[in-house]
Design a binder for these strands. Structure first.
Lengths: 148, 148
DNA sequence: ACTAATCCTATTATTTTTATAGGAAATAGT
DNA sequence: ACTATTTCCTATAAAAATAATAGGATTAGT
């Protein structure tokens, strides 16, 4: 039960994009990759997925780059993770009843289903703007700590 | 973010063991495997893990089989899943700070940490006896439905 | 001794993850 | 038109994790 690099890198990249693209100007993937310490080539794939999911908008050519498709407070963590990691169904039989014969009687399916819902609700509680704000507060906290 | 077959089969097997071994008599792995529709050879591995984790007790030889190491209401889902799937840390840096350089400043780590805790708490809320009871209720419900 | 159960180690096939590589397509500036 | 710089698309591949299978060793009741 781990988040893959796609989800981890992708989320960090989206926060980066929300922070650095706030003014409405497109952000180069190369810059995000550099700041986040991730291979640009790998990030391309991730942004391809995010693009198809309608979460980012790309401008090609020189002076191109990426923009958020919606406002940071309208993009929930759930959407991002769902796009990159697939739906939060912890077992296949929750989203696809044909995945198991015992669907009707199996109690564990119910438990996994509830937990999946809980995870979704949790992720729905955070938007990109939430995270950007938290990130800012954390950085400031660190600075204060450093000066003491 | 999926539960692997080890976790899925293992949990179902533990519920099975709790239900059929309630009287204190050991249960054959072959019987559990048959009831759960899982390869006996594969279940052996899973029970090896559960054994080392101190969740089940094995009796070898003829008339052998498996017993729960503790009472069904003392075994939480969290213990079972932790034994079979590893700790509920969704990213490595939560349990191992050396896994990433950005640990101090990264806000996503905090989010994953909180979510991991939530999942743990959820799983801690269910014990084997809870699930056996729920299973029983569900079966009864189905029977009633069937008779209508 | 025989039988039936768990235990242990090795092997293997498949799938998923984690990338890398190379070029195509688009666009801004010259 | 040309060039530089960006995203886009497809293919490939190495590594790791998953999902088993196989064969025999060990244990214990009859």
């Amino acid at each position: 039960m781990k988040i893959s690099t796609k989800g981890r890198y992708g989320l960090r990249a989206m926060i980066d994009l929300a922070a650095y693209g706030a003014a409405g100007n497109p952000v180069f993937l190369s810059d995000i990759a550099k700041r986040q310490g991730v291979s640009e080539k790998y990030l391309e794939h991730i942004f391809g997925t995010l693009n198809k999911a309608g979460l980012v908008k790309a401008l090609r050519g020189r002076k191109g780059g990426y923009l958020l498709q919606k406002q940071p407070d309208e993009i929930s963590l759930k959407e991002i993770i769902a796009a990159l990691e697939g739906p939060c169904s912890l077992v296949d039989c929750v989203s696809d009843v044909k995945a198991c014969q015992k669907v009707e009687t199996c109690i564990t399916r119910d438990v996994w289903k509830i937990l999946g819902k809980k995870i979704e609700e949790f992720l729905n509680g955070y938007t990109l703007s939430t995270l950007v704000r938290m990130q800012g507060e954390k950085a400031r906290q660190d600075t204060i700590m450093y000066h003491i």
